[in-house]
Amino acid sequence: MSQTAPAAPAHRVARIGLAAMGLGIAAFALLPLVLPTYQVSVLTEILIFAVLAMAIDVLAGYTGRTPLCHGAIFGVATYVAIYVSTQADGALLLPLVAGVVAATLVAAVFALLAIRTSGVYFLLLTIALGMIVWGMCLRWTSVTGGENGLRGALRPAALTDQLAFYYVVFAVVAVVALVMWRFVRSPFGLTLRGIRDSESRMRALGYNVSLHLFLAFTISGFFAGVAGVLYAMFNDFVSPSTVALSQSVEGLLMAIIGGVGTLFGAFLGSAIIIGLENFASLYTERWQTVLGLIFILIMIFAPEGILGRIRLWLSRRG
C-alpha cells in the first residue's frame, strides 16, 4: 500500500525533523526558567531517563535486539555511585566514574552471554540477567542495604540548587545525545543496521558480527551507566526498585513510544511516561496498572511509536 505512494523528498522530512528538534531543545532550555521547582525536577528526570531510553534504542533500534536488562545496568551505576560516595567521603568525581565503569563492565559481561541469541530468546535472557542484579541488590544486605536501600549525597554544594543542577544535566544530556547521534550514524552504526537487517549477509561480507554486537551492547551499557549516575545525583537514594524489571520495562516503553530506531524519540517517550506518572499519581495509586495498559495499547495499536508513526505518515503523504 505505502509502496506505491511516492516518497516525500528526504530534505523536507529532514527539515521538519530539524524544526521539531529545535523546538524541543528550546523547550528544554527555556521552560525551567518559568516553572516552579517541582516541575523542574520532573524535567530533570525526563532528561535522565531519555538517556536511558536512547541507550536502549541503540540496541533495540540499530541492532534489532530488544533488551530488558538496561534498568539493571542503569541501577548498577546508581548503586555503585552512591555506595562509593558513602565510603569515600568528599570525593566528587570518583563515585561518578566508578558508577559508569561498573555499569559498562556489567554490560560487557551481559553482552558476552546474550549476543549469541536474538529475538525472543535475547529478550528472555536479558530479563534473567537483569533479575540477577535485582536479586543481588535485594539479598546482599551488608553492601546494598537490602530493601532499605542506600542513601548518599553526590551533588557538590554548588549544585544543590534544583535549577543549577538542571542545567548541568541539560548540558551533559546534550553532549551524550550528540555523541550517540554521531555513533549511530558512524560506519560502525551503519554496520549495526546491516546486522539488524541481515546477519548472515554481513557475516558473508566479512564483518565480525559478534564483535560488533558485543561492542554495541557494551557501549549501550556505558550510556545507561551515564544515565544511572545522573540519577544517583538526582535522587541521592537507591533501592532494589531502581534495578527492578519495571525499570527496564519503563525504559523500553519510552524508547518504543518515541519510536524504536529514531533515537531522539526517546525524549518524547520519556516526557510522556514520566509526565503521565506524575500526573496519574495525583489521582490514583494504580500507576502500575496504567503503565501496563499503556504497554498493551501501544503494542496493539502503535508498535512503531509516535515518531515512527509520524515518519511513516510523512513518507506516505509525499
Binding site: 529478550l123 520495562v249 502500575q288 496498572t289 501496563g292 495498559l293 499503556i294
Partner: peptide
C-alpha cells in the same frame, strides 16, 4: 498482535503489570 513475537512478549509483560497490580 499475532505473527509478531516481540510484540506478543511485550504485550504479556503489560498484562503481567496489570494483573499483579
Amino acid at each position: 498482535v499475532g505473527g509478531n513475537e516481540l510484540r506478543q512478549v511485550l504485550l504479556t509483560l503489560g498484562v503481567a503489570f496489570v494483573v499483579n497490580d
